[in-house]
Amino acid sequence: MRRALVGCLAVSVSAPPLGLFLMLRRMSLTADVLGHGILPGVAAAFLLAGLSVPAMAAGGLLAGLAVALGAGALSRATGGREDAALAALYLVALALGVAMVAAGGGTMELTQLLFGSALGVDDAALLLMAGTATLSLGVLAFAWRPLVLECFDPSFAQAVGARGGLWHMAFLALVVLNLMAAFQALGTLMGVGLMMLPAVAARHWSREVGGMAYAAVALAVLASFGGLLLSFHADVPSGPAVVLAAGAGWVVSVLVGPVDGVAARLRRRHLAG
């Protein structure tokens, strides 16, 4: 349980800034697709090696990277209808993954893989989560400027030779890695929540990318604490509990956040009227 908390806190520091860039690039759906995309890989590893962290991590990583590359190729091949192709992809991946786990194991394992289990975090998983967080923060610190430029003004980025495409691929690889890390505690379906919900909520706390990243991390840390407490006391699987806590943070942000929050808008209208 304590391992789960430390692991979730580590992921809370690295995943939300990635989610932020996904949101800013209007790629929120992609996180979902990658989250589902790792499931067949995890399931295959589970069938071959049981609930072993290194095997499942490797399987998930391979599957996630394949989906990330495939999604890009697919959207080019189908002429830009990216969202539809991605939706199709993640439904297939989810069904395939669930079918594989169900064939090889029981409902217990299926629940654990999909929704996470705080007790499932062993030392190997904890190392994976902490290592991922360290690596992600390092890469983000280095790649911050190219990522911002590529989001804000892609033609300019290309014109000055910023190699946006290369950074983008590295960025997607980090997303996969973080989803893998989050999956150990939160499950494949719910790991995405800790990445995207704080990022979406952060929009209401700052007008600058840097401020948003801090806000997203703070919200994710709170959600990890709150969610794991809820999971422990109310006997809810850890994944949904953390995501619910993050969801609560999002609702609060929408209501009282200083940037475009409901309360801020009402107050402004009141002052204007």
């Binding site: 800013l24 400027r145 911002v148 430029l149 989001c151 804000f152 003004d153 892609p154 033609s155 300019f156 014109a159 929009r203 700052s206 007008r207 600058e208 990318v209 948003m212």
Partner: peptide, 21 residues
């Protein structure tokens, strides 16, 4: 100078940061 419509004008970046790019 790209067409302004090709940029993400809602991107959360300050004027000075944008110019410094």
């Amino acid at each position: 100078l790209p067409q302004a419509s090709a940029l993400d004008r809602g991107f959360p970046i300050g004027c000075l940061d944008a110019v410094m790019l």
